[in-house]
């Protein structure tokens, strides 16, 4: 089965639509949503409604720190993220907020694990920045492949049976076979706010039979997404950074 994995959509309707279209065209059969549906972008309602529909049709979804912050003021965030989250809170209705608060922290599916930040302590929202961080997450789970997001920069780590680590910056559209002999941590880029220098929306396809992972990019209408952020009075930097991919 071909999975399409999306992370860190952040209320960016144009980016999410573009990714869904490309993923469907490439034959994706099941969707996985790795959290942070809202925050930063100007279309949280549409994104959450779409996520609810996809989940009703069998998609897997987990909770991100921004999704949690909508329902709890205990989450600490930087100033711009805080402004965006307070704005978002006023836009979502009760059922949308409940959908976000009811999301699980992680989902295990066969020998795969889906989590927003990493597997060792998901509720603490640690970033995977290095092989050391990746090793902590991999040691915490027996899963063959862990999928996570949160850092908005694609990466692929592995750990051998002798606990040796490898790190790799994936090439777009080049399938990589995730060999059975080791454990893998696949870090997604972001759909709605890429930060790896490439402004196009990032997602991943994973073939569960061949164990091949392909990092994909979808170009989208950045001008509209950025315009909606400005028109709604959100911090301008949140609009500007979209075209820079950082």
């Amino acid at each position: 089965m071909l999975l399409a994995v999306f992370s860190d959509i952040h209320g960016n309707r144009q980016a999410f639509e573009a990714c869904l279209k490309v993923a469907r065209a490439k034959g994706a059969e099941r969707f996985v949503l790795l959290g942070d549906f809202v925050g930063y972008g100007a279309d949280p309602e549409w994104v959450v409604d779409t996520a609810m529909e996809l989940v009703a049709q069998g998609a897997i979804a987990v909770r991100g720190n921004h999704d949690q912050a909508v329902n709890s003021s205990a989450e600490t965030m930087n100033a711009e993220a805080q402004v965006a989250i307070e704005w978002t809170r006023g836009r979502l209705d009760t059922s949308q907020r409940r959908f976000l608060s009811d999301l699980p922290m992680l989902v295990e599916d066969s020998d795969r694990l889906f989590v927003h930040s990493e597997a060792s302590s998901p509720q603490r929202w640690h970033y995977v920045r290095s092989t050391v961080d990746a090793a902590k997450s991999l040691i915490a789970t027996p899963a063959h492949v862990t999928f996570c997001g949160h850092i908005h920069r694609p990466a692929l780590y592995s750990m051998s049976v002798t606990a040796k680590m490898t790190s790799f910056t994936p090439k777009t559209d080049v399938p990589v076979q995730l060999l059975r002999g080791r454990q893998w941590l696949a870090v997604m880029g972001s759909v709605g706010q890429p930060r790896d220098g490439d402004p196009s929306a990032a997602f991943v396809l994973f073939d569960t039979e061949s164990c091949q992972i392909t990092y994909c990019r979808a170009p989208y209408d950045i001008a509209t997404a950025a315009g909606r952020i400005r028109d709604n009075g959100l911090p301008h930097w949140l609009a500007d950074r979209l075209s820079q991919g950082r």
Partner: peptide
């Protein structure tokens, strides 16, 4: 392979 993880890098 420049497009694949290098499993020998830290081995």
């Amino acid at each position: 392979h420049n497009h694949l993880p290098d499993l020998l890098q830290e081995e």
